[in-house]
């Protein structure tokens, strides 16, 4: 009976502009995180690591939740992808082919194949810098 009585009333509603405010804040937060991650990538990239690291970088970008972020896509397409292409071309005989496949996979967001690539990249010869970098990424992005 009390339940019926309570149902006569409507629940109080939030302020009309609340959704806009929340999503503005959410987008700002995600942008700031994305920029923070790119700062880390830039730092690593400047160390001139070999192609497996380049692959790892892109795999991490895709695997991270921020792949669909506009900033992230622009950076992948405009900055990292050409660098990966260049690095692969220089360091591997079949570099161009590999780079093309990799970039196509990244574009499709094919996670199963990307995961395979990630695992393959981990089997490549590693340097202390790369190990350190990989651990840093694993901790930061995959918890």
């Amino acid at each position: 009976m009390m339940e019926e009585y309570l149902k006569k009333f409507q629940p109080a509603k939030p302020s009309p502009g609340l959704k806009d405010n929340i999503f503005r804040a959410v987008r700002a937060e995600l942008s700031s995180i994305a920029n923070g991650r790119f700062a880390l990538i830039d730092k690593i990239w400047s160390n001139q690591l070999f192609w497996a690291t380049a692959t790892t970088l892109l795999v991490c970008l895709v695997a991270s939740n921020l792949y669909h972020h506009e900033v992230c896509q622009k950076r992948v397409a405009g900055l990292y992808a050409p660098k990966v292409l260049e690095t692969l071309t220089v360091e591997k005989d079949n570099g161009k082919e590999l780079a093309g496949d990799l970039i196509a996979l990244l574009g499709e967001g094919n996670f199963a194949v990307i995961r395979k690539l990630w695992e393959m990249s981990l089997r490549e010869p590693t340097t202390p810098t790369m190990l350190e970098f990989r651990n840093e990424l694993m901790e930061k992005w995959f918890g």
Binding site: I22, F23, R27
Partner: peptide, 15 residues
């Protein structure tokens, strides 16, 4: 911009 449309739909239904 990261796709927040799924989150937006959640807000519309549950906010």
């Amino acid at each position: 911009m990261q796709d927040t449309s799924a989150l937006s739909r959640i807000y519309d239904e549950y906010g």
